[in-house]
């Protein structure tokens, strides 16, 4: 633990503990709906943060991150419903399935950079989606899979809440450590200047491939958390528009901040839930907000509070 002293200031530790205690106590004061909503938010926070590991900290144009999330969810659902083995094993296997998909897609995509990379990933991800969408006999097609059994311990909404809270907190901690490791430092170097990284002896493509696998792994965990709350999976989990929404969360919170995407996820899910009560035109509002954001706050909400002397964004050739 002494090793990690450098990573956490006293302030961070105190805020972290206070937040954790608050979240641990919250279920005693909330109705079932809010407990459910928070549990969902945890899963999406984890998803958005895993996306940002490669997006904000690696500069990779991860246009279709949701495919790893959906793949994890499906891997879990299929394992649980088809294998007959203990459900807990599914929680271990699913993230590795996502990581494997990250490896396979990554091998094809990391040869390219920037927009090419992103669009190729969008295409390959859509292929995964298309197969899932059509393979009725195995994946349930566009109906998805429902009534997925969850272990009793975490089957209740409060149980799922605590499970998601603890898993998300542990994963965020782990990702924070990774982002601040030599790997993460190198990744940030690649984000800023891949050409220079090559020149200092870094195998950029391999680094990006590993980053892709790690991000896919955490996205897979987020997918299993989703199933824990919902008990079902459906192809929309890996539809490209959901990937875009996740990108928006990163943008909204601030993708140069570790906690930015999580904040973005909280804002988007909360606002969507409550605006959704009053109007069916939620996406119109989201679209307009996003436009304003791109024009006036391109570094996200957190950049309002933590001003860094960061050079303005530059377009790369």
């Amino acid at each position: 633990m002494i090793l990690y002293n450098a990573l956490f200031s006293k302030k961070t530790i105190i805020i972290g503990i206070v937040l954790l205690v608050a979240f641990l106590l919250l279920p005693y004061f909330l109705t079932r709906f809010y407990i459910y909503l928070l549990a969902l938010i945890f899963a999406i926070c984890l998803l958005a943060t895993s996306l940002n590991m490669v997006l904000g900290f690696g500069g990779m144009y991860q246009f279709h991150h949701a495919v790893f999330y959906g793949f994890g969810a499906y891997a879990f659902a299929l394992f649980v419903t088809k294998s007959g083995l203990p459900i807990w094993i599914g929680y271990v296997i699913a993230p590795f399935c996502s990581a494997l998909l990250g490896l396979v897609l990554g091998l094809i995509t990391v040869r390219l950079t920037q927009l090419y990379f992103g669009m190729l990933q969008l295409s390959l991800g859509s292929l995964v989606w298309a197969i899932t969408y059509r393979w009725y006999s195995f994946t349930g097609g566009d109906d998805g899979i429902h009534g997925i059994p969850i272990p009793d311990l975490i089957g209740s909404s409060t149980g799922a809440y605590y499970f998601n809270l603890i898993v998300t907190a542990a994963c965020l901690l782990l990702m924070y450590i990774i982002v601040n490791s030599p790997f993460g430092r190198t990744f940030q170097g690649i984000r800023d200047n891949p050409e220079r990284c090559e020149a200092v002896g870094i195998n950029v493509q391999r680094q990006q491939l590993v980053g892709q696998i790690i991000a896919a792994f955490f996205a897979g965990i987020a997918g299993t958390l989703f199933v824990t709350i919902e008990g079902s999976v459906f192809p929309d989990l890996m539809f490209w528009t959901f990937s875009m929404e996740t990108l928006i969360m990163c943008l909204l919170g601030g993708w140069f901040f570790f906690m930015g995407p999580a904040l973005g996820a909280v804002i988007i899910i909360t606002v969507r839930t409550f605006v959704g009560i009053y109007t069916e035109y939620w996406t119109l509002i989201l679209g307009l907000v996003l436009m304003l954001l791109i024009f006036f706050l391109p570094e996200g909400v957190l950049s309002l509070f933590f001003k860094k002397d960061v050079p303005s964004e530059k377009k790369e050739g």
Binding site: G189, R196, Q207
Partner: peptide, 27 residues
Amino acid sequence: FNRLTVFENVQVAVLSYRKKTFNIFQP
């Protein structure tokens, strides 16, 4: 590396030289 500090700029090269770029757990 525009967004990194001066220290980190040089450190990236040193870490690369020491073959530490895949170390994901040490700070």
